[in-house]
Amino acid sequence: MRLQRKRPVDRERYYRGVRMVPYDLVKELAIALGATAILVVVLAAALSSPDVPSDTIQRWAQDDPVDFVTAATNELAGSSTSAQYGPPYNNGSGSVQSWWVLHPQAWAGVHQPVDQPNDFVLAPLQSAVPGDASLRTALATFTGASGDRQSGWLDNYTKALGKASVKSGEVATAEGDYGPVPLLMSRLLGVARSGGLDGLLLTNGNFYQTDYTKPLLFMGDGSHLSGLAQDQKLTGNLWGMMNETGRYPGQSWLWLYTLWYQIAPFNASSNADLLVVLVMVGATTLLLLVPFIPGLRDIPRWIPIHRLIWRRYYAEQAAGRGART
């Protein structure tokens, strides 16, 4: 008989000799559903939810044309952060992380290829060529020039942008040997200001688009988006991972993950992301294996918070022992 009812007997045996009292689990769930519903409705009605409007390349170009043109010039020169990033976007090495014998980023390889000079600058300008003879000429001049000549123009212009100003909506620099670059950048700024670049960076030959890799990489290379994030204390060095825009709680459950970025050796390491991820994988594994790790699994025994959870049980045990003696 016992053999046949193997499983249920386990529980019967487990509680054998233990006083059982009525307990309505389904009623408890129903009350919990009602209580949480009231709480959630009140919070949503009173506090709503965070929704700070997204940044756009259009807004960036309008608010800070010098920063936009500087970023675009860096893209064309292939010297931006994203242009030198490495996998999964290109074959650079600027943002490739590794630790010890682990090079997972390099191993995974290029999966979302992005060609910054062409994708971010030249191709969008090509689409603006019809009806703009000077742009056509400037593009032809630039693409027809030697690599040395191109980088000479771009270097000179990048240096000049450090002291640039905005005059009647255009980025003005001191005179210099920039070739066709100022005209290219002026036209790109115009396209960006009209909102055209936001769309052009999404096109990939298909009608429907859901992949924002290119515009986000481009915006990440500028300082407009990061400026807005800085205002909201969202940046990594400000525990930004657990912060939220506005006065809302954020992903506070990421406190441990974002903590590591604030302390040595992680806060000074160029491989911080990989190191922190590895530490968190280790920490999660420890949490997973708590039941099997001597020491860790004994902490609840040493710090007797359970005396409060089951205080009634321990009180009855003590009273029972007292009665018997």
Partner: peptide
């Protein structure tokens, strides 16, 4: 929204550093 943009721009580095960025963009 802005939050999503910034999280994407930042988190990509962490995800890419593990190699998962190749599949989880």
């Amino acid at each position: 929204n802005l939050d999503a943009q910034w999280i994407a721009v930042n988190a990509k580095d962490a995800v890419n550093s593990t190699g998962f960025g190749a599949f989880f963009d």
